[in-house]
Design a protein around this nucleic acid. Sequence first.
DNA 1: GCGAATGTTCGCTT
DNA 2: CAAGCGAACATTCG
Length: 271
Amino acid sequence: MPELPEVESIRRVLHARLTGRTVRKVRLINAEAAAYPDAEEFCRGLVGRRVLGTHRRGKFLSLELEGGTLTFHLRMTGCLLPVESGFCPLKHTHIIIAFDEGELHFSDPRRFGRAWFIREGEPDVSGAERLGPEPFDEAFTGEYLKGRVGGSSRAIKTCLMDQSVVAGIGNIYSDEILFSAGVDPARRARDIGADEYERIAALTPQRLRFFTEKNEISYEDYIAGLGKDYRNTPYLQVYGRAGLPCEACGGALVRRVIGGRGSVYCPHCQK
DNA sequence: GCGAATGTTCGCTT
DNA sequence: CAAGCGAACATTCG
């Protein structure tokens, strides 16, 4: 469901709601594949720990606990809802974490999402450590990008979505960033010029900041939308808009499959 | 009924 | 052998 801006929105909601609370009980429902390292250790490890804060790295979202970390990855359709005790779980709820006050529900229709409990001092096996720099990191520059993918035959869009290149960008925001940069998403990374890499690297944090701000949502609205209605739809310039006019030139936006993912771009504005 | 959907990983091919 | 590609995962929605 979420890319960096959405995960950040959810993090802020969880942070305000859960910081300071203590885990009392954990319930797994058909979550054998979702809770790591295993159901037993996941549940037992969490109970009794207090939430000290929250953290986002790429699309990973963590609750920092006393003596450990609870990390989620929502993949395509995962959803985290901090609710009052007694809230009727959504249909595909797989994990319920009850705190001294309120609960955190993790639901995911497609079951791609994952949760890890990592004890302090133990290696982080969630995969978060294999991520490239955050887009806001000063290490993320045009020079870095070119050095990292500039020899590749893959499409530039595919490279931007590679989490080991830069963390947090998915199918929506790669299209949006490349539209802003005026670069055709299907172009091979090796054919992209240094000036274009600079544009892409500069626009990436700008666009993600913009969409993160537009995504801000109150706890009440987040719950009212059942954790799903927090998207940037009104502000997207290309994603989901195939056939509609480009807001820059008026020409029709085109859909095309790039790297196995449905992509939308403007053939006139993006070279 | 068919195709596509905001993601990642695995296995096969080049 | 590294890189790149397609399939697989499971469900809903249009």
